[in-house]
Design a protein around this nucleic acid. Structure first.
Lengths: 245, 245
DNA sequence: AAGTGGTCTAGACCACTCA
DNA sequence: GAGTGGTCTAGACCACTTG
């Protein structure tokens, strides 16, 4: 049978074929062979190219759609997601206006510095003693008021030459796309905390006002940490929207 | 071909076969034909019983596994999930201890009353003017301290005779299983709010202390609202864990 | 060894989009 | 009407669990 030969030849280390194919597709997208917004070849052609059945190719594509790497639409084709597009920029931003729509606001006062990773950063980002990070600090404004201060740490290894780049969007979603990093899941820990002095100042509230503290760790599709962010948020009208299920 | 006849006969209103099969399986589980923890027949037998191919049955079962209705394990079988089991009781409970494990605590002072739905309840739960609700109020304790007060509203229509039942777990997950309701998703809106007097009293904090307010709407698998719950939470050591992605 | 779910194939046909 | 993804079939074989 063809299946015997095919499986023996292709299925290394007992890892299912469709997973290997998914990884191969991810690599192509990460390398930039297929750009965000572009259509990729149809299922039958892809299957032929990989030497697998279309059912297996389909399973790989199903996975990538679940992981928000691709979007398929019947009759049109399969497209690489553009993570800077309206529908996806706010993927990890859970603060909503009263109407339920994401309240992004406008970023102001962006500061970026490079520094050796401190102990907390090394622990959260799984870094070694010699690794360094970019620290990004930013405030977001809505209706002429600052409502959140974000302080993010990013391993420099993932973003070579970041400081030299000019005029780019420093939100993690855009950065990841720029560097061909596909984002996976995030975990956000929410507490109530008194605003530290410098943050209270930026937010224009009295020191020690109770604000929402968001401690978020963002992972790539393969599970490597790419961003640790602590945000302090003074919500007057909106809310944090958590989806469970 | 067999496929022509089969499709024409079975595929009503153009709804995919695997979705119809999934719904049929859900109904059987809801009716109690298959009890939580029980194994259901194997895929081939099920497919034969429904007169479909095993691939299609598999797709239906895949969906039910995603929706946490079933658990499959290779070599053992397919089992109906027991939502009162350790792994699933805390499915909608996002408050965690510092170690990351769910901090359930012990429920105390449970009060249940039946009342006509007020305006807010009617709006959130999609009820009509004549519908009524059960209102459940409960405090949870951890380490000899109350840390959260929950006030939930449940449409009486879903839980007939609830007040007469004795010695049952009044957490929504257990109630749903008791009444054959399969739970789907929830949306939780998180804000910081001053604790209302009666709640501050139960939580043993000064009135108007800033606490975390959790406003959660829980839906069934078919998208009907089954519980609207507002919790006020005074977290000393833990955090709310939101998962994104 | 028997029984289960998991993977994979090689098709056919349906539903949809767009030129 | 040509081209796309979506559904469905009828198998074979692999990996795993249990008696």
């Amino acid at each position: 049978m063809a299946s015997d030969k095919g499986l023996a030849a292709i299925r290394l280390f007992n890892r299912p074929l469709y997973l290997q194919v998914r990884d191969a597709l991810v690599e192509r997208i990460g390398k930039g062979d297929w750009k965000p917004g572009m259509a990729i070849p149809n299922e039958v052609d892809l299957a032929r190219e990989f030497g697998i059945s279309s059912g297996t190719m389909r399973k790989a594509l199903d996975l990538l759609e679940d992981q928000r790497v691709l979007t398929r639409s019947q009759g049109r084709g399969t497209f690489v997601n553009d993570h800077s597009s309206a529908g996806l920029v706010s993927r990890f931003w859970r603060i909503s206006a009263p109407d339920g729509k994401p309240m992004n606001g406008d970023a102001k006062r962006i500061e970026i510095v490079e520094a050796p990773a401190n102990e907390k950063e090394r622990r959260r980002l799984h870094l070694g003693a010699e690794d360094s990070v970019y620290r990004v600090r930013r405030a977001r404004w809505h209706a002429d008021r600052p409502f959140v201060v974000e302080e993010a740490s990013l391993p420099t290894a993932h973003f070579p030459g970041l400081l030299e780049r000019k005029g780019i969007d420093h939100r993690i979603v855009g950065l990841a796309q720029l560097y061909g990093i596909l984002l996976g899941k995030a975990e956000e820990r929410i507490t109530i905390a008194p605003a530290p002095p410098s943050i209270a100042d930026t937010l224009r509230v009295a020191p020690d006002t109770s604000v929402m503290r968001l401690d978020r760790l963002l992972l790539t599709l393969d599970g490597q940490p790419v961003e640790w962010r602590v945000a302090h948020c003074h919500l007057v009208s909106g809310f944090y929207l958590a989806e469970i299920g």
